[in-house]
Every structure is written in structure tokens, then in C-alpha cells.
């Protein structure tokens, strides 16, 4: 079924590195995945695994000294044409029409994602004016509409307020309103609920789901929270040290994880069936320093099933391990 749908966004072998005096950090090291229209792709991993840099690479807003070194990011536009975002210049007109127009982005920090000296409205209206041919009045009306659509009460008043006058939940809603104001076909949500309390988290996730149903928009959800992924995602990509270690449908991944890292991740969340008063298993060791990437499979120093003489020498390729799923591990030939 999936084979006859063209992916909205197709990332192939993406490599993004940061070049510093101390050394080069390969933040994203050959990641490949697809995002399909109207579906939600969850990207999971510990902090520092390159999830956020992947999102920034797609929009071509990686901060210096970071740079995309290799790979392609093919976006299918509304008219059916395809463009490779990697080939565009970082400040070109084309990529700017993609940012905010085709792809919207929301961030983890609703507090600092708004300018402290501009009103929420100024920031929404700016985006509307930029991406659609409307006048200032119409843009303002659309801004108010966007705020209303994300469930902000009294949007005609809120639009003239500053972000520091809003509560955390409202701020994140406003953030979503800015991202949605130009009807993007893909919304990248980078840890959208991490900074919020649990109740607000659930509301924001509900909101995202509702908007997705209304508009048929694709969502790329970046998070370290497996619960959020289980609830929201259709497909899952698991990343470790800049590499995709496993990908597949959400049910497959959660019920039958293949890669030892995915298994370890899933074991470390408490479940209703787990024995009470037993210490949760943790993944031994910690993420290696980016300058000291292990040779071979990046996970082998922490892996319980590492094969000596193989995992620490060769790098396992990402290959099919079943119907519509892939993993990069020597346990699955």
C-alpha cells in the first residue's frame, strides 16, 4: 500500500558535521528515512543523538560551524515537483519559501522561541505576509484565525500581547499557530511537549492530532519520550549517535524491537506489567563523547549482545529485517 504513495519528504544518507577547533563532530552520520503525507513519523533517541540537527538540516538552518556534508533531502511540493533541499543555498529564495511555507517548525522552548520584544501577532503576521499575497489587514485576520484554531481564547486580544504575558501552554499553542499560519504540509515538532507539565502535554498532543486530521498534514515528531511516540506516531525512526539504528511501523517497533538499543530503550520505561519494587534496567555506560566515536557499530561498547571481533570492527548497514522495517545490526543478517 505504501509503495504507491510518494513520500512527502525523503531523506537519504544525510550527513551533517560541526567543524570546531577541537575536532569534527558528526552530529548526523548517514541518516535515511521518509515522511508520508498525512502520517506522523516519530524520531526517537537520547539527547545528543542528532535528532534536532536532522530537523535543522531539513530546513537548512544548522548553525555554524555545522554544515551538511553529504546526502539529499527531497521534498515533493504541492504541484508535484521535487526539489533537493541540500542543493539549495542556505539563504536562497527557494529554501525560504519552503521554510514556513511547505514546512513549519515548532520548538521545545516556547519561552525563548518568541522574541521578547515583539508581540505574538507581529511574529505571526510577518510569516503570513511573507508566504501569501495578502494585505496587512487580511494577514492580521488570518493571524487571529490561526490563534483561534489552536484553541487560544480571545485571540483578537492575545494577538497584541507579548509571549511573556502568556502561560506556558498558551505559548506553545501560539508557537504552533505561527508554524501553521501558512498551512504547511509538513510540521516538524522538535520536543514540543518537553518543557510543559503533563496535563498541558496531553492537550498539546491532542491539538496536534486534531489539526493533522483536519488538514491532512504530515508531522515529524522529534522526542526522547517513548510514550509520546507510541501515542502519536505511525512510523518510528530510532537514532543513536547520528545514525538510524532501526525503523519501522510503530506497533512493530514497540512489540518486537530488533536492534539491541531499541530493546534496551523499551526496557527502561516502566510498564504496568513490570514487577513492583524492582529497579528498572538502564543502558550501561553513557553516550560516548562525539570526538571519541567508537569504531564499528557505534552502540557496541554499551551493547549486551555485541559480537567481539565483528561489532567493534565493522559498521553494520541499515537493512531490511522484515516487512517494511529495517535495522542496522549484525544479529540480523
Amino acid at each position: 500500500m505504501r509503495n504507491d504513495t510518494r513520500p512527502l519528504l525523503s531523506v537519504r544518507n544525510l550527513r551533517t558535521s560541526f567543524f570546531q577547533d577541537e575536532g569534527t563532530t558528526k552530529a548526523v552520520d548517514g541518516a535515511s528515512f521518509d515522511v508520508f503525507p498525512g502520517k506522523t513519523l516519530g524520531i526517537v533517541g537520547e539527547s545528543g543523538c542528532g535528532k534536532s540537527v536532522t530537523a535543522q538540516s531539513i530546513l537548512r538552518i544548522v548553525d555554524r560551524p555545522g554544515r551538511i556534508v553529504d546526502g539529499e533531502i527531497v521534498l515533493t511540493r504541492a504541484d508535484g515537483s521535487e526539489i533537493d533541499l541540500v542543493k539549495l543555498k542556505a539563504n536562497s529564495r527557494e529554501i525560504r519559501s519552503v521554510r514556513g511555507g511547505d514546512i513549519g517548525l515548532i520548538f521545545q522552548e516556547p519561552m525563548t522561541s518568541f522574541s521578547p520584544v515583539h508581540t505574538v501577532g507581529e511574529q505571526i503576521i510577518e510569516a503570513v505576509l511573507l508566504h501569501s499575497e495578502v494585505g496587512k489587514k487580511e494577514a492580521r485576520l488570518r493571524g487571529i484565525e490561526a490563534l483561534r484554531s489552536v484553541g487560544i481564547p480571545k485571540p483578537e486580544r492575545r494577538i497584541d500581547e507579548y509571549s511573556f504575558e502568556l502561560s506556558g501552554g498558551l505559548r506553545q499553542r501560539a508557537m504552533i499557530a505561527v508554524a501553521l499560519s501558512c498551512n504547511p504540509r509538513l510540521l516538524i515538532a522538535d520536543e514540543p511537549t518537553t518543557a510543559l507539565d503533563v496535563t498541558t502535554q496531553a492537550q498539546i498532543l491532542d491539538l496536534l492530532r486534531k489539526i493533522q486530521q483536519e488538514r491532512g498534514m504530515a508531522i515529524m515528531l522529534i522526542t526522547h519520550n517513548l510514550g509520546v511516540v507510541a501515542e502519536m506516531a505511525d512510523d518510528v525512526v530510532v537514532m543513536y549517535l547520528g545514525k538510524v539504528v532501526e525503523q519501522g511501523k510503530v506497533d512493530d517497533i514497540f512489540h518486537d524491537p530488533k536492534h539491541p538499543y531499541t530493546k534496551a530503550l523499551l526496557q527502561s520505561i516502566p510498564s504496568i506489567d513490570s514487577t513492583p519494587r524492582l529497579k528498572l534496567p538502564t543502558i550501561s555506560g553513557s553516550i560516548p563523547h562525539p570526538f571519541n566515536r567508537p569504531k564499528g557499530c557505534p552502540f557496541h561498547p554499551r551493547c549486551v549482545s555485541a559480537i567481539a571481533g565483528r561489532c567493534d570492527v565493522e559498521e553494520p548497514p541499515l537493512q531490511a529485517v522484515g516487512e517494511g522495517r529495517k535495522a542496522s545490526c549484525f544479529l540480523y543478517p
Partner: peptide
Amino acid sequence: PYVMTARARGLSEYRVIMRYPVRV
């Protein structure tokens, strides 16, 4: 982060810098 969100809205680099961080 607000600089990055401004960039993600599709503003040109010059406008991003002059309108947001410089203003702040």
C-alpha cells in the same frame, strides 16, 4: 531559539538578524 524560529518562518538572513537579535 527565537532566532532559529524566525529563520524557520522563512525570513531572509538579513531580516532575521536585524529584526530579532539586533533589536533585542
